[in-house]
Amino acid sequence: MKELIARLVEAYGPSGNEEQVRALIQDEIKAHVDEARVDALGNLVALLKSDPDGQGKPPTRVMVAAHMDEIGIIVTHIDEKGFLRFAPIGGLTPLTLLGNRAVFANGVMGTFGMEKREILPTEKPKLDRMFLDIGTPDKESALKLVSVGDAAAFSRGFAQAGNRLLAKAMDDRIGCAILIQVVKTLKKNPNDIYFVFTVQEEVGCRGAVTSTYGVQPDLAIAVDATDTGDTPESRPMNVTLGKGPAIKVKDAGMLAHPAVRRLLVEAAKGLGIPYQLEVLEGGPTDAMVMQTSREGVPSGVVSIPCRYVHSPSEMVDYDDVTNAVKLLTKVLEDRVAI
C-alpha cells in the first residue's frame, strides 16, 4: 500500500485541478467497481453494486468519500522581471512556503521568495509580500511557461520516517489511498457502495455538495486527515499519531451522527483495533455538506491523525492507515443499517 500512497501524494492536484489525481485513481479502481463516472464538477463517482441477498430487500446506499484536491497557489500576476504573484488555494500558512518549491501541472518548478527577505522577530509574513520564482529572467519568458490563473502545488517527495509516512498532500490522498485499498480488499458486499473522490474540498467542500446530491446516499462517511495534539506544546487536542484511526464526534462544521459514530466504534471494538474519538476545534470536512444534502444524510468521519497538516511535510502513522482500511472494510462488509 505504501507504493500506492507514494504515487498518490506525489501527484499534482490543487483544488480545481484534480485531473491528474483522478486519472491515477480511475486506473487503480476501474477493474474493481461496476461503474465509474465523472460529474460536472470533476468528482469521480464509482459504484460497487451489492451482492444479491436473495430476500429482495433494497440495499443500503452507502457513500464513502475522500477528497482528491490539495492546497496550493494560483497565479494572479506575472511581473516585468518574470516573478509570479499568487493567491492561496485553501488554507495556506505563509511560513510554510519559505524554502519550499511549487510545481505546475506542466512540470514547471519554482521556489518561493519574499520582498525585503528578512522577517522581523515580531512579524508574521503575509502572502502578498511573497512571490514564486520560476527562474525566468523576464515576463516574456515566464509567459511561455505559465499563465495567470494557473495553479501550483507543493513539490515534495514521499518519504518514510520509522513507521511514519511523510509527504505533501497527505491531506487527503491518504483518504484516497484508504478507499482504493478498501475497494480492493472487500470480500463481500451487501450494500450499494459509492466510492466518491471529491474535488475542491479545501476551498469549501464544493465537490461533495454536488456528488452527494447525485448519489443520494442513505448513509455517508468521509475519510480525511485531522490535526493532532501530540507535539511539544501543541494546542491541546486528544488525538495522537499511532493510536488508531480517529472517529469524529464533532468539528467546526458538523456533529457526527451518533449512530454512524456508534457503527464505527462497534466495528473497531469488534476487530480489536485501536481507535480514538476526535473533537476538532477546526474543520470542516466534506461530511459537513454531505450531512445536509437533500433531506439530510446520517454522516460520520473516519479521520487519519496527521501532524503538520497543510504543510509540505504532513506526517501520518502507517498503522493508523492500515487500521482505517480494516475498520472501513469491516463496516462495509456487513449490511449497513442504523
Binding site: 464538477l41 494560483i74 494572479t76 493567491a87 492561496p88 490563473g149 455538495v209 454536488t210 456528488s211 446530491y213
Partner: peptide, 16 residues
C-alpha cells in the same frame, strides 16, 4: 483570480 464572488458560486453547486 480569487477576487470577489458571483452568482456562479451558487449556480455551479446546484443539484449535481
Amino acid at each position: 483570480p480569487m477576487v470577489g464572488a458571483t452568482d456562479a458560486g451558487r449556480i455551479h453547486l446546484a443539484r449535481e
